[in-house]
Nucleic acid binder design. Structure first.
Lengths: 154, 154, 154, 154
DNA sequence: TTTT
DNA sequence: TTTT
């Protein structure tokens, strides 16, 4: 008991978020995130290795993702590992792992303009994504007033 | 903007929690936590190095700590670095750093049953302390003022 | 570029480590780790949810795991997500995710002395598994061949 | 025993790195890092709160910091809390906390030029700072094959 | 399949 | 001041 299941990622989106608006005001967003590491192999050659992660966000987080993230966005993500299991057509047990995102933050979104002034976006995203509210998160089917309006950048 | 300030500790309490019940139902608990690392120096001798951390817990967390933690308890802690600044008697600027605990979990409390106690204890603590709260985050049915006013203790 | 891919787990082993000694002195250990979270559903009922993780350890770490871990052991794990992909018999693309363990620490091994064993064990494991190595990592003045032999508690 | 002392930060440098080259090829860099969180107070007003951290890097990390970081740089940092204690002029015991950086990564340093091609810098920093080598930390003398063969199990 |  |  009393387990810990925590994932921390920094990477870039491989595509725009896929967002589904479900009944009852529920929203889910799926993201593909690439984390790349680089190291030198035995011969001293630089090797790059990219891992792709399937992220799942709900409700407030999903709405923020829909609005502010797009292909290429660099984000910091905090979440947990979550597996879905099912039987495929052949009756084999299958398992798929997703990262259930509990909080995220946009990175490096300095509005290109070195000092173009606050685009507002970063702040809003910062606020909404809630790097610091990462202990808060959102349960899909749950009225999640913690962050409440906070997950919504308005 | 959009920062991350996260601390993860595993260690043992150097003393029983110090708990203060304030007006307005607020509670604050202060803990001293030791994290010990061991390594071998150049001569191959084992060296131990202990770092002491000042932890601060509020309200729900503080109450759980008061009830279940004591000197020697091993815990997993998640929180953030928080500095207090003030002027000392000589008028010098002083600064003290504390870890504001956002969640914790009791470890290794294999009911050795030192002194009995409800076997359900770990669960309660696990649940209440919310090791899982931070993964799960929102307790559906629980008034979860966490970040709310909680970051502003007064 | 410059990604982060980090996993932090605390849980219990569902079985003894499976260890394979390969040619060339290489060793790999596979562990099944359960992380359990508890929360209350909308009706206020306590719900437990367990996630099973496939861990993979190499060489020094694997040897320590082989020697000191067993079914039921509670450990802290730090690692990264790593996917294997292949084609199954039907020619479908398949993917399996594992946690590549970079360090681990035994927890709560308060020598209840289930079956005796060297009381110094925890230290050795602590040292060897190197939970602290990853925090210590490089000591400025120390020739820190990293994980090298250092992962071996001898 | 077997403690964990881990700090994860994302923020911006308040000033250029202060670097000291010591005898014996040792180098130490000190950084001031700001992590900002934003939340809404009880009245719904947006509040920003900035925490300043004193970071300490050694050798390889210090050299990379010296070369690539400057005031305003956004970085991801992994390290541990480390306290220095001493007596001040009045004979009072004083304590100062620093974050000993074990790895860092530059963020958002997309060479402004959307696709200006690899400036090289990011890669180098990525490689050197070793977001992924973050369990490894600074190799005094660099050539950091640690994970090297280790990530390649054969 | 663990743990409480 | 903890723990091993």
């Amino acid at each position: 008991m009393a387990g810990v299941n925590k994932v921390i990622l920094i990477g870039n989106l491989g595509a725009d978020p896929e967002v589904k608006h479900l009944e009852g005001d529920k929203v889910v967003a799926n993201l593909r995130l690439a984390t790349t590491e680089a190291y030198k192999d035995r011969s001293g050659n630089r090797v790059e290795n990219t891992e792709w992660h399937d992220l799942e966000l709900w409700d407030g987080q999903a709405r923020v993702a829909e609005q502010y993230l797009k292909k290429g966005s660099q984000i910091y993500v905090e979440g947990k590992i979550k597996s879905d299991t099912w039987q495929d057509e052949q009756g084999n047990n299958r398992k798929k792992i997703r990262i259930r995102v509990l909080s995220f933050t946009m990175l490096g979104s300095r509005s290109t303009g070195q000092d173009g002034g606050p685009s507002g976006m970063e702040n809003m995203s910062g606020n909404a994504a809630g790097s610091n509210r990462n202990q808060v998160a959102s349960e899909p089917s749950i009225d999640n007033e913690e962050d409440g309006t906070d997950d919504l950048p308005f």
